[in-house]
Amino acid sequence: MAYSDKVIEHFQQPQNVGSFGTSSDVKDRSDIGVGIVGAPECGDVMQLQIKVDDSGKIEDAKFKCFGCGSAIASSSLATEWIKGRTVDEALEIKNTEIVEELALPPVKIHCSVLAEDSIRTAINDWKEKNGHKVEDDHHHHH
């Protein structure tokens, strides 16, 4: 399968790789939201950590990913897109936009869904830590 140039770019030079600490380090930090989605036996796990300021703006984002090139590219792109947005703006990001930007083939749509899920899960984690209402409307955009 041929990869798009954008996937290859993100794969070779992924943006915002890393974390703000181990899961236990950041567990009690109210400025950090963590989203871990996927499963090793399915071949992809994405970990997204967001650092949110008092106004609800995502100051910084870090990802780690076990998965195929498209999964790595999707999570790298996700961190780029959410940085500087408010959490509510970040929740507007749809997996279909990731598919379009990276020119993902149909078999890789799953990777974009995972990236969208990681954003939502990280934001919900941050919201829960800060006593905000969490929307449990959990729908996929395949």
Partner: peptide, 24 residues
């Protein structure tokens, strides 16, 4: 591995098979 969350967990001594993963 530098970007693998599973490698981090392994280095921290976490048993990956014991985690409840949110699979699709």
């Amino acid at each position: 591995r530098a970007m693998s969350p599973l490698f981090d967990l392994w280095k921290e001594g976490v048993d990956i098979s014991k985690i409840e993963w949110q699979s699709h």
